[in-house]
Simulated assay, not measured.
Amino acid sequence: MTAQLPTRIEHLVTSGTFSLDGGTWEVDNNVWLVGDDHEVLVIDPAHDADAVAALIGDRRVVAIVCTHAHDDHVNAAPALADRTGAPILLNEADRPLWDRTHPDRAPDGPLPDGHRLTVAGTELTVLHTPGHAPGAVCLYAPALGTVFTGDTLFAGGPGATGRSFSDFPTIVRSITDRLLTLPPETVVRTGHGDSTTIGGEAPQLADWPARGH
């Protein structure tokens, strides 16, 4: 019998644009894969379905998870779903944002708070963390010592709340109540830029400006 390989995290940076409220910006996005040699979970397939598919290879895709529905996080999701047959999962509160980008293609399933996803024997728990977007979620994988935060928490502070569908007090409350309660050594893998840790961000709470996009 072949020993089961441990679950691993893979990372891809893709480039494109983010558009909202009449503006468009060039952005680099983090795409995350969690899995092993046989199956993977894809988090936030951005901009380039071909590049994400190349990283997946011939592995089975358990699900395509969107941490929120800003267009730069979901623009490649339908194409990747068509190629892999995997369902697209999104918190229902972000459906109005999703429909702006994909009016003719609904997500395949919801991401309610507390929902658990399993890939390669590893469990990830959905944490609803509104503020950057109404349906923003994070995925906490205690066995991997990591949380995937999308644009809710970055290295240096919370995601931006200066555009439609966002609210700064709400995102701070989400981070305080749902993320800063995690073990301080938990690695924060973000939607853009460098990773950080829960313990590294907690002391800065009082001085956090709104940032990111």
Rank of each mutant, 00 (worst) to 15 (best):
G156V: 06
T125Y: 12
L111T: 00
G135F: 14
A155Q: 15
A155E: 09
I171F: 12
G135W: 01
P112E: 03
P183L: 15
V147M: 02
P142L: 06
H213K: 10
A93S: 02
A136E: 05
F165L: 04
A106T: 07
T129P: 01
R211P: 03
T122P: 02
T101A: 05
V147W: 00
G159I: 01
R105V: 04
T170K: 07
D151W: 00
V119Y: 07
D207W: 13
P96A: 04
D108F: 12
G114K: 09
D94Q: 09
G121C: 15
S166K: 02
H128N: 09
D108N: 12
F148V: 05
A210K: 07
P158G: 13
L139S: 02
S174E: 01
L90E: 04
G121S: 10
I175E: 03
P134G: 01
R105L: 12
P103D: 09
G200P: 04
P103F: 06
L124F: 13
N91T: 01
A136S: 08
L111E: 09
R100D: 08
A210S: 12
L153A: 05
R178E: 11
D108K: 08
V137H: 04
A143D: 12
L111R: 00
A106F: 09
T152W: 03
V137A: 07
G162M: 10
T161S: 07
G145C: 08
G109P: 10
T161C: 13
L205P: 15
G191C: 14
F165R: 01
R163F: 12
A206I: 14
L179S: 09
A160N: 15
A202D: 09
L127D: 03
R105N: 13
P158Q: 10
A143R: 07
E92H: 10
L97I: 14
L90M: 14
L144K: 04
W98L: 07
T181H: 13
D167C: 08
T125H: 07
P107G: 05
F148T: 05
P209E: 10
T129C: 15
L139H: 00
V187L: 07
S195P: 08
C138Y: 13
R95D: 05
G157A: 04
A93Q: 01
P142V: 10
G212F: 03
S195V: 11
D177A: 13
P169G: 10
A133L: 00
I171Y: 11
A206S: 14
G200R: 11
A160D: 15
R116S: 11
T152L: 06
V172W: 14
T197Q: 07
G135S: 03
L117R: 02
E92T: 13
T196F: 06
D99L: 09
P134W: 00
S174D: 02
V187Y: 01
D99S: 12
L124C: 05
P107C: 07
A141K: 01
R173F: 13
L205H: 13
I175K: 01
T129E: 08
L127R: 09
G212I: 06
R189Y: 02
G200F: 11
T190A: 05
P112N: 11
H128I: 04
G145H: 03
V188I: 14
P169N: 14
P184Q: 07
F168A: 08
R178N: 14
E185G: 11
A106H: 09
L111P: 01
L179I: 15
